[in-house]
Design a protein around this nucleic acid. Sequence first.
DNA 1: CTATGTGAACAGCTTCACAGCG
DNA 2: CGCTGTGAAGCTGTTCACATAG
Lengths: 214, 214
Amino acid sequence: MSKSENIPVPAVRRLSLYLRQLETFLANDRLTVSSKQLGQALCLSDAQVRKDLAYFGQFGHAGIGYRVGELIPRVRRILGTDKPAHVLLVGVGNLGRALISYRGFSKQGFEVVAAFDKDPAKIGRELHGSTALRIESLGAMSAAVRKHSIRLGILAVPSSAAQGVADEMVTAGIRGILNFAPVTLQVNPSVAVSSVDLAVHLEQLSFQLTGSPS
Amino acid sequence: MSKSENIPVPAVRRLSLYLRQLETFLANDRLTVSSKQLGQALCLSDAQVRKDLAYFGQFGHAGIGYRVGELIPRVRRILGTDKPAHVLLVGVGNLGRALISYRGFSKQGFEVVAAFDKDPAKIGRELHGSTALRIESLGAMSAAVRKHSIRLGILAVPSSAAQGVADEMVTAGIRGILNFAPVTLQVNPSVAVSSVDLAVHLEQLSFQLTGSPS
DNA sequence: CTATGTGAACAGCTTCACAGCG
DNA sequence: CGCTGTGAAGCTGTTCACATAG
């Protein structure tokens, strides 16, 4: 739908940023915004903004720019976040707990509705994120996926366990994995994977600094 | 040094992944590895691996591949992580606390040696990451930066405060910022910024799923 | 015979520049 | 005029294919 053209991966990532910025403009009661203004807020060129949005349809108005209240729901629809989505999380360590209570997810329509862990000592314990939830064993994943129509899962277990748990998630019916373990997951290509390697980001900064010391 | 050529940004990011994978091979007592093997473990082509490494120097041995024990320290040196680095963190909420105790940082040579927060109720409280530390007020940042020779900072405050705190970090002498707030920081170009927007990653997965439903 | 390093070909993304519309 | 949408140009990054080395 929309366009049969091939959409660049970076354009999709920026689409999320446009949405975030548009929401900020909306909160400031801004009615319209030009590609130049949107670009400046995100350190992008105006041409980049126009080209990106044009991949997905014709949203602008010549001479006016983009109507904020009109563009936001369209972008949400494209990203598939126009309706709230249920998400599960595996690995209730420090990071996992922080992610469950992270408001940024719910703000964008993602709700963590089930949490799992291998540690028997943790199973049964209560957590309070956006809604209260009980830590379950990995064996209960399939049932939870069906019960809550879950398609996305967050993987926050130690590296050594990550591949095995990822396999279990896929078996349970998860279609997309947000991976926080610093390993490359090998999964069926029909399953989407997005990895966040926190140390990699620090290393990138470290690299940029070498060569321009104090 | 090494090469005066222009190095692609994606190549630097992959360099971190090569390091991670090489460390895994080392743990498995693997002495040498070919570009093909390294690539397979990371879902990359062999040509990509060779080209990437070649940007930084000549590390391989024809007919043999790359010696693991030899390549690891060289990559660390390139990334600037051959010596431990001190890092500070601002924003001791759920996410901030999780990051302070995140082992992945110390594993790659990054140590959080100072933590700051605006909330007077939190200031003075003790935390235990790799080393115990006391939460300080933002005003104490400059002194900490000088005392511990800190160059990198982690920003884990709410979006509304992020830009202001980032400015304070730069004033305090921070040279690179790892930003977890879902906003685009506007800082002096001499300061490196790397942003991790957790919700964006879920949105990317959501997008990939739309069009290939159950 | 295996595996690197690399110029050359290719593909993909971004910028430019302008026609067209309100 | 102001601003979008878009072909065309330009640039950056990836893949190919092979000369070369052990």
